[in-house]
Design a binder for these strands. Structure first.
Lengths: 209, 209
DNA sequence: GTCTATAGGGCGATAGAC
DNA sequence: GTCTATCGCCCTATAGAC
């Protein structure tokens, strides 16, 4: 039996660094987090961090891709009948965000907003995956799937922004059930409701980088 | 006649630095932007930037508060009858974001997501201003105003994220009119529609900094 | 007002002892 | 595997000549 992929972790130190990196990147973004901070949080020498992961960039990418199976997560989120899916989706989404996956996702979101190369990651990998899931599991018309996915992303990312990153009240302190009741109908409309005809495209004037 | 407030700009150099700072902060956030980059964009010596503005932090704050009268902007956004305000609001909001005010606001949003001390600025100044405007100009029940403002913020900030910062298609390239038609109904519901009873509060588990 | 020079510090990354 | 030491870079900010 040949071994495939990465070999087992070298030690428990490696796992400690991973946890510290996830926390630190989530809290401060890619630029704001430093290898020295991560090492300190993990109770480890800074040079060990690079010994295990090679570079800051690779460490970040390892955090993003480790222990989070995006496809499976998406399938679970969109499971069940399309009717009344909106409210269930918000509930599952928030529960998920308050666990380990949320810390990783916070790190990605915080970073994607300021670092172009990680914004590309969201654009080219996550968005298409959501679109595919909408078609396969929710039964959305393929011609409308990318539009519905983008609208979905706009409301859910904004919810994360308001509740977890900016902590705008009263959304930040509301119960998950209340938020799901308030925002569920929006999600439902983006998933299965009527939309304006075709998404006429005309690039906006861009001045924000 | 006594003079009040800041004296006139020392020179046209100062204005050039302001413009360059607005662009650079908008594109790269507070941490990612450097004084040297801003000086280079303005065609000016780096030390002049600090000569005029004192520190990087003060420069950023000056950019945020200069030439943007938040109260007036808000009043214009919410002007007109509350019926069908949703779609009009989105249209005005996007037009605004594609001008100078949008560059400043992008800078703030990019930064607020990664720098705690500027997140506080959004939380404690902008959110309450929106709440007040909802009561005074839209006629929202004061008891519900902060909830409606937060829901509004969640959808509009997410829209900005998807369209301008992450550039998720097809929302990034759609016309303003199309986006307004797609998202307007959501905004309308958050402004004047039915909401779940009281916003029961129970702090979520927080692990995202 | 504008520029040169540099202080003073934190960073990512590497080399090498143990 | 772990740690010490350090290189080389870029940064903000300041002092001072012009």
């Amino acid at each position: 039996m040949t071994r495939r992929g990465r070999r087992p972790a070298n030690s428990q130190t490696r796992a400690a660094v991973m946890g510290a990196a996830r926390e630190t990147f989530a809290a401060r973004g890619y630029l704001g987090a430093t290898i020295r901070q991560i090492a300190a949080t993990a109770g480890v020498d800074p040079s060990l961090v690079l010994y295990f992961f090679g570079s800051k960039d690779q460490l970040f990418r390892t955090v993003l891709t480790s222990s989070v199976d995006g496809r499976q997560l998406l399938s679970q989120l969109f499971d069940g009948p399309a009717d009344e899916l909106g409210q269930r989706l918000v509930t599952r989404f928030l529960r998920l965000w308050e666990g380990d996956a949320g810390a990783t996702a916070s790190a990605l979101l915080r970073t994607a907003v300021t670092e172009q190369r990680f914004g590309t990651l969201v654009r080219e990998h996550i968005a298409p995956a959501v679109t595919t899931t909408l078609v396969e599991r929710v039964g959305v018309d393929p011609a409308q799937a990318s539009v519905r996915a983008a609208l979905l992303a706009s409301q859910l990312s904004g919810l994360v922004l308001a509740r977890y990153l900016l902590r705008i009240e009263p959304i930040a302190s509301a119960t998950i059930d209340w938020v799901a009741a308030a925002i569920g109908p929006t999600i439902q409309r983006y998933l299965t409701g009527a939309l304006p005809t075709p998404p006429a495209t005309a690039p906006p004037v861009l001045n924000t980088g």
